[in-house]
Nucleic acid binder design. Structure first.
Lengths: 142, 142
DNA sequence: ATAATACTTGACGTTTACGTAAACGTCAAC
DNA sequence: GTTGACGTTTACGTAAACGTCAAGTATTAT
C-alpha cells in the first residue's frame, strides 16, 4: 500500500518546483492562492504543496485553457470539494454543471468548425505556394 | 442568380441589428472596429454593415469563444484576407496555422477531460441527493 | 418646428490576470 | 560571515476587453 496516488502521499513540492513543472511563474501561483484557488500548508513562512495542491493547480490551468475565469474555476472547485449539506446546493450545482456542459459542447463545435476552416486556408496557401514556385523557379529564399 | 449568399448580396445591417443578433453591445462592435477587426462602410456618419461584415463579426466571436485574443483573431483574419504576394508570408501563415491547430487539439482534450469529470461529479451529486431524500422523506422544497 | 429616436465620437472607469520592483528572512556552501 | 539561491510580503503597474457617461449630429414622427 501507499501507492504514489495514495491520498496520504507524503510527496511535497516547493513553489518553484510547481512553477517549473507547469510553466508558470511563482507570482502566478501565489496569485492563485490569494484568489482562494490553492491553500498550501506552511513550514514557517514557506509554502509546502502536497500532491493534492498540485492537482488543484493542474485543474486551474486546464480550466483557464478552456476559457474559464479564475472565479469560475474556484466556484467549480469549491463545489467539488464541499460536502454539500443542503439539497438547494446540490440543485444549484447541477444547474451550474449543465450550464458548463453546454458551454463546453459549444466550444467543441467552434473548435471543429475552426479546424475545418484552417484546413481550407492551409490548402489554399499550399496551392498558391506551389503556383508561385512554378511561375518563378528562382525562389526568393534568401 | 443573386442568391442570398451572393458576394454582392445587397442586404445591409445597422449596428444595433448586429448587436441584437449576436447578443453584444454596440460599444463592443465599435470597439472591434477600433481594433481593426471590422471595416463597415459609412452612410454619412452611420455605419453600414454588409453580409461580409456580419461574417467577420461572427468569426471574431467564435474566435473569442475558443480562447483567442482579439489581436490573434485579427492576425488570422488579415492572413485570410490578404492576397499574400510573398512566399515568406505564406510560410509564416502555415506556421501560425500549425500552432493554432495544436492549441485547438489541446483544448479539445481539455474539454473531454473536463466533461468526464463533470459527469463524475454529477453522478455523485445525484447519488447524494437520492440518499438524502430517502433519509428525510419530508423534502425541504419550500 | 420640435420632440423623440438612433447613431456618432471621445474620454474616463472597471475587471481580470498577472508583472515588476522593493525590502526583507533563511539556510547551505564556501 | 558573507554570498547566493530561494523564499516571503506589500504595493504599485499594466494590457485586454469592454462599460459607462457626456455631448453632439442626423433622421423620423407628429
Amino acid at each position: 500500500m501507499n501507492s504514489p496516488m495514495d491520498a496520504s502521499d507524503p510527496t511535497t513540492y516547493t513553489i518553484t518546483e510547481l512553477a517549473k513543472e507547469f510553466r508558470v511563474t511563482t507570482r502566478t501561483i501565489r496569485f492563485y492562492e490569494d484568489k482562494g484557488l490553492l491553500k498550501p500548508a506552511r513550514n514557517g513562512l514557506t509554502r509546502v504543496y502536497t500532491a493534492r495542491d498540485r492537482v488543484h493547480l493542474k485543474l486551474v490551468l486546464r480550466g483557464k485553457r478552456i476559457g474559464l475565469s479564475l472565479d469560475e474555476v474556484r466556484e467549480i472547485m469549491d463545489m467539488y470539494d464541499s460536502a454539500p449539506g443542503e439539497i438547494g446546493q446540490l440543485d444549484y450545482m447541477l444547474d451550474k454543471l449543465a450550464e458548463r456542459r453546454a458551454m463546453l459542447h459549444r466550444q467543441q463545435q467552434d473548435i471543429e468548425l475552426t479546424l475545418k476552416e484552417l484546413n481550407k486556408i492551409e490548402a489554399q496557401c499550399r496551392q498558391r505556394l506551389a503556383t508561385m514556385l512554378k511561375q518563378t523557379p528562382q525562389s526568393q529564399v534568401s
